[in-house]
Amino acid sequence: MPTHPQPVPPGPSSSTDPARPVRTVLDERDIGRALTRISHEILERNKGATDLVVLGIPSRGVPLAERIAERIAAVEGYDVPVGSLDVTMYRDDLRMKPARTLLPTQIPAGGIDGRIVVLVDDVLFSGRTIRAALDALNDLGRPRAVQLAVLVDRGHRELPIRADFVGKNLPTSLVERVRVTLAGTDDVDAVTIQGTAPAEEVTA
């Protein structure tokens, strides 16, 4: 059984395309700092981590959830249940594309009933993925509360959904593409943004 099939995301086809320059907005150390801050904010908000369950949304949300759980464990001194929640079957655009490959759902043994579930995803955009995740949680149990942590909030919400913990607010235009790569799944930790016009400033 595959534990972590990681398909190549339908991101930028070529990062060397001169008409679509790629700009790095967060590098490895920025991502590390953002995750550390989010972890502390989660602990602060919930006054500890005793009832927490951290669930990542595949594919990039899962390694982020694991890193947040590691940081929480390092601060609190005990392990926090961490898992993954695939929302493919709950998407509202399921019928608009060919049937998608399912990704792993692994709910920690204690379940989610009465717990505080922290959903973790890489980019918050339209909010539709999170809507699907809330539906998926509904079929798994009844958490006491659901909170949302994202590495990047790029705006353009289409549903009344907001994140509780945000790594970086990144104002974008709709034609731009935000891509998160994470070591382990990809080559390096980075958040990049790809525009349509030549960039005025390029930061390495």
């Binding site: 059984m1 595959p2 099939p5 695939d86 079957m89 709950y90 399921l94 490959t101 399912l102 990704l103 792993p104 759902t105 539906d135 079929d139 798994l140 149990g141």
Partner: peptide, 20 residues
Amino acid sequence: LRTAAELRELADRPIKKLPA
């Protein structure tokens, strides 16, 4: 087979239903 492996987990859940 890969899809079936993910769907098999459903049998262990309290609500054995997906909306697909």
